[in-house]
Amino acid sequence: TETRTFTDEREARRFEQEARDNGKDVQVRESNGKFEVRVK
């Protein structure tokens, strides 16, 4: 599991989409204006 934290939602979404395109299981959590993207 890899976790990346972004402050920019667009960057978080781009990373999320890229991971999904690669067939990964992705979860995005938002807290305090930060976006935590977990990739399995």
Rank of each mutant, 00 (worst) to 15 (best):
S31P: 01
K24D: 07
R13F: 03
R10H: 14
F35V: 05
E36K: 01
K40W: 08
D8H: 00
A12P: 01
K24A: 11
D25L: 12
K34S: 11
R10P: 07
G33L: 01
S31R: 13
N32V: 00
F15H: 04
E2P: 07
S31Q: 11
K24F: 15
A12R: 01
F15S: 03
Q17H: 07
E11Y: 00
D21N: 12
E36F: 06
R10Y: 14
R29M: 12
S31T: 13
E2I: 15
E16I: 14
T5D: 08
R13Y: 04
E11T: 05
R4A: 08
R29E: 09
A19E: 09
R14H: 09
R20K: 10
F6G: 06
E11N: 03
E36Y: 07
V28T: 08
D21V: 09
V26F: 02
E18W: 14
D25T: 11
K24Y: 15
V26I: 04
V26R: 01
E2G: 06
T1E: 13
F35E: 02
K34M: 14
E36M: 05
R13G: 05
A12Q: 02
K40F: 09
V28Y: 10
E9S: 04
N22G: 10
T5H: 13
F15L: 05
R4I: 13
E9P: 07
V37R: 00
V26E: 01
K40I: 15
R38D: 09
R13E: 07
Q27N: 10
V37K: 01
E9L: 07
Q17V: 05
N32Q: 06
A19N: 08
Q17Y: 04
R38I: 15
N32F: 05
D8F: 00
T1M: 10
T1K: 07
T1R: 08
G33Q: 02
E36Q: 06
A19S: 09
T7G: 10
A19L: 10
R29F: 15
E30G: 06
R10K: 14
A19I: 04
N22A: 15
K24Q: 11
E11P: 01
E30W: 06
A19H: 07
A12D: 03
Q17C: 13
T1Y: 15
Q17D: 07
T1N: 11
G33N: 05
E2R: 08
D25R: 09
F35T: 04
K40S: 15
R4L: 12
N22E: 12
R13V: 06
D8S: 04
G23F: 06
Q27Y: 12
V39Y: 04
N22W: 08
R14A: 13
F6V: 05
T1L: 10
N32L: 06
E16A: 15
F6S: 04
D25A: 08
T7V: 11
